[in-house]
Design a protein around this nucleic acid. Structure first.
Lengths: 103, 103
DNA sequence: GGGGGTGGTAAGTCTTGACTTACCGTAAGT
DNA sequence: ACTTACGGTAAGTCAAGACTTACCACCCCC
C-alpha cells in the first residue's frame, strides 16, 4: 500500500523535488532550474510522484503546475505511525523481559 | 538525514523483514525461512537495516537475534510529520487562493 | 498561420544494488 | 578434536531505473 510512496521518496533528486513542491506549487521549468538534473529527468520524477499520489498537476494551457498532494503523504504517515507504535511496544516488552532475566 | 531510512524501506523484501522484526525479535535463520530469498540475502538486508538504525543485533554465541530499533523509525516519523504538516498548510493556502480567485 | 516557449515521450547508456552460490569463521555439543 | 549449526563475506550475474539527448506535440500571441 505504501510501497509507491516509499519507493518514490527513496531517490534523493525526487526527495528534493518533493520538498520544493511542499513549500509551494511550481512549474516543471522552475523545478528544473532548482535541481541538478535536466528537465526531462524532472518530468520523469514528477510522473513517479503523481503516480504515488504525492503530487498533483494543475495544467493551464501548456503550463503545468505541480503541487504536493496530502493524499499519499497521509497514507505514508499512518503506516509509519503504526510501525512506530508497535516497534515501541515490542521494544518495551523486550526491555521488560531483559529486566526480568536480570533479577 | 532520513535518507538511510527511506532507502532501506524502499525495497519490498527489506520491508517484509522489518515488519517481522517489528512484531518480535528474530534470528537470521528464522527470517530466512519467512521470506522468499536466501539466507545471505537476508544477512545483507539486515546490514542495511542496522546501518539505517532501523534494527539492532543481540549476539549470544553464534546466534544473532535482530530486533527493531525505535531510533531510525523515530527520526523518519518526525520527518514525515514535518512534511505532512507543511504540505497540509501549503494545500490549505492554495485552496484559499483558488477560492478567492473564484469570487 | 508561423514562431517561441511550454512540457511530455523515445531511445540509449551506465550505474546501482538485489540476488545467487561458494566459502570461511566461530561457538557448542559429544 | 570432530562435527554440526549458525551467520557473515566474496564474487559474479542480471535487471531496474536514473539520467542524457533528440524529438514531438501543444498552446498562445503577433
Amino acid at each position: 500500500m505504501v510501497d509507491a510512496q516509499l519507493e518514490a521518496l527513496s531517490v534523493d533528486t525526487r526527495r528534493q523535488i518533493y520538498r520544493l513542491l511542499v513549500e509551494r506549487p511550481r512549474s516543471v521549468g522552475e523545478l528544473a532550474g532548482l535541481v541538478p538534473v535536466s528537465r526531462p529527468a524532472v518530468s520523469q520524477h514528477l510522473k513517479v510522484l503523481v503516480d504515488a499520489e504525492l503530487a498533483t498537476v494543475q495544467t493551464s494551457g501548456t503550463r503545468h503546475v505541480y503541487s504536493a498532494d496530502p493524499e499519499g503523504m497521509g497514507r505514508l504517515r499512518e503506516w509509519i505511525d503504526e510501525m512506530w507504535e508497535t516497534a515501541l511496544g515490542s521494544f518495551a516488552r523486550f526491555a521488560r523481559d531483559e529486566q526480568r532475566k536480570g533479577t
